Computed example of a mutant assay.
Amino acid sequence: MRDPVTDFEYPDAWVAACRSPDRLDDVRRGLAVLTASGSVIRRGFTTGTTAAAACKAAVLSLAFDTVREVDVTLPCGITVRLPVDGYRGQASCRKDAGDYTTDVTGGLEFVVMAAPSLSGGVQFVPGEGIGSFARDTPRHRQGTPAISAPALDCIRRSIDEAVEEADLSGTTVILTIPRGAEVAQKTLNPRVGVHGGISVLGTTGFVEPWDDHVTEGVLDRIARAPGAVVLTTGRLGLRYSRLLFPEHEAILVGNKLEEALRAVDGDAVICGLPGLILKFMNRDVLAGTGCATVEELSATPLWEETAHRELAAFRARCPRVRVVIVDRDGRIIGESP
């Protein structure tokens, strides 16, 4: 049985140990994760998925009055059905965090107003509660909404599907998150230069339920992996790890690099984007740089010297761990000496 989100092949022993066989279909569909102990843990949905569902419901309710659920095709290609509350051009959807119990955005309401466009075409307007960048970053200009490219594509695709289904010539869609500014104070946004609300994100469309049970499953995979294992922190890192190290098993560990390395029996590689990796090697890496994030640092003249210093120091502490840092296009921008 394979996880359609991560492409991980579950060992037969895990499937046999499953304590909830009736939930294995959710695992096959990518809606849940199976762990080594046999427990099944539900994935949640990202802010981008929630926003897309609310937008689609608002547009559909222009034609069908009441809308109670919508189908959304996620960035990972899986189509899911979400509950919504749509009525005559207004709709809402609450963010489902799944079994990720510490997700501070869990339960947050996304509200959308939609109106037919007299001039045709589709206009999407990010409104109250959505953060914006306080200054220029390597990927965003000051003042632009904090909406990631995969999330925006999912939102626009969902709106377009609704426009076609409702047989509209066009629409204007305004997305708001009424408690977005309040909840954002509990996130990293103020520290990374996003002000006024939360970020609308979602590389796959799912929120991974990173709790102790999943850690157990991850550590079991690391212990079972033949040869050197590649540890990575996110979805892009997982993709590039598989491309760069096709002969090794690449395992997504999120921000649990310390626990993962303790489980390694032999050599290991850490591969991924710079943010979590450099902060793991040195939590004070940004001190004195004037940068709010490691990604911002990577675009400055300070990057080469800083990366070389931190990689050399980490290699001295952990000589059996190779580190390969890539950017979002897969280019290697730092590597252990």
Rank of each mutant, 00 (worst) to 15 (best):
L257Q: 01
G234C: 12
S148I: 04
E161D: 15
A263F: 11
T137G: 09
P178N: 10
P116Q: 05
A250Y: 04
Q142S: 13
G127A: 10
P246W: 11
A292L: 15
G106Q: 05
I332G: 11
G234S: 15
G275C: 06
L219K: 04
T187L: 13
S39K: 14
D160T: 11
P150Y: 08
R315E: 05
K256S: 12
R309G: 08
A292M: 13
V207M: 04
L31V: 05
M281Q: 06
R81K: 13
T101L: 13
D211G: 15
T105H: 02
R239H: 14
T105N: 04
G217A: 10
V72Q: 03
I130N: 00
F280N: 01
A313S: 13
P75T: 05
L74P: 00
D99V: 07
D167K: 15
D25S: 14
E69K: 02
G202E: 09
L261A: 09
D167G: 08
L118F: 07
I251N: 05
A91C: 10
L152K: 14
F45S: 05
T66S: 13
P319W: 02
I222Y: 08
L188Y: 14
A52I: 03
N255M: 07
D85M: 07
V27K: 04
I222V: 12
G288Y: 10
L261F: 08
I130S: 00
L201Y: 08
W14E: 04
T172H: 01
H308Q: 14
R331C: 12
D26N: 10
R322K: 15
E295K: 01
A228K: 12
M113T: 14
P83L: 07
L231C: 08
R262L: 13
H195L: 12
I270W: 00
P83C: 02
G197P: 00
Q123E: 15
V40L: 05
V321E: 03
R328M: 11
F133T: 03
H195I: 14
E258T: 11
R320A: 12
D167S: 15
A17Y: 06
A312P: 01
C318S: 13
S169A: 13
A146I: 07
R322M: 10
H213C: 09
L278I: 06
L219E: 09
C55Q: 09
E128V: 12
L168T: 07
G193N: 09
G121F: 07
E295R: 04
A54S: 12
A312T: 14
H140V: 08
G98W: 05
L257G: 00
A162D: 04
G330T: 09
T203K: 01
A260P: 04
S298N: 05
V264P: 09
V70S: 00
P150R: 10
R139T: 10
M113S: 13
Q90Y: 12
A91V: 08
P178A: 07
A57L: 02
Y10D: 11
V183C: 07
E182P: 03
F280S: 04
L273Y: 00
E182G: 06
G38A: 11
V324T: 11
G254L: 07
G131Q: 04
G44H: 06
P226M: 05
A316R: 14
T47M: 08
D160F: 03
V326D: 03
T105A: 02
L257I: 13
V323E: 00
T233Q: 03
E164G: 06
I155R: 08
C291K: 01
K279A: 12
I177C: 05
A287D: 13
F280D: 00
R221W: 05
E9W: 06
A316I: 06
